[in-house]
Amino acid sequence: MLERKAKMWQKIAAAAVSFALLILIWQLAAMNPQFSQVMPGPFAVLQKFFVSFVEPIGKNVMLQHMLITLSRWAAGFIAATILGIALGLTMGWYRGFEAFMRPLFELVRPIPTLAWIPLVILWCGIGELAKYVLVFIGAFMSIVQNAYHGAKSVDRTIVNAARMLGCNDRQMFFTIVIPASVPAISAGLQIGVASAWSSVVAAELVRSSSGVGWIVVTGQQNNNMTQILVGILVIAVIGLLLALLIRRVEDVLCRWNKRGR
């Protein structure tokens, strides 16, 4: 137990050192006047970050920008999760539906989210709906793909065991296929979270009047390097937190799959 704790602290220390080194090198570089023209130092960025919670960038303060982007992300991601899992599991479990749906899905799947942007803007305008749709597309493909593989690879003897115990077709889907696919679904959600987050930022970069992507793109337009970096920092931190959140959800859903929990 003590040893494990010591190992944990070693890991934290190692991570802290790498962060400290990055900041140190960045700061040393920024002290060169030529470099600081294009790249403000880390403390200037951090200061701007904290100030932006009180002083608005554009019409909103930072927290509002964050919440706006997060709500766009959530709307698209939740829709993608529900529909993606439903489609993936159905396609993976029912042969007939698979034969019907899979070729179409395989054709659409490799299209990068960015390639959808012009079409989505023409269809949905430049409002909120277009952003939801883009986030949806970003997350949907990997969620479907993983749920599909989950349902496809349910252990044959587990299925036989359930049939032998008297479960009918409907019970098979709900009490065997769904729980057996949870680890695969979680893997899909992990990927989906990240791609949904990139999609929402991409959508805001292209057309928006608020949100963290907008902070970055207006920073570019105003030649405000500090604002760009603040935007990128916020994108990184929220992306990381979302990934951690989904991992937490996975831990709860898959506790039967992890030794010692």
């Binding site: 252990d155 003897t157 036989n160 065991a161 729980p179 949870v182 039967w256 799959n257």
Partner: peptide, 9 residues
């Protein structure tokens, strides 16, 4: 079953 086939979840 030989390979158990108990439901892990």
């Amino acid at each position: 079953f030989q390979n158990l086939a108990i439901f892990p979840w």
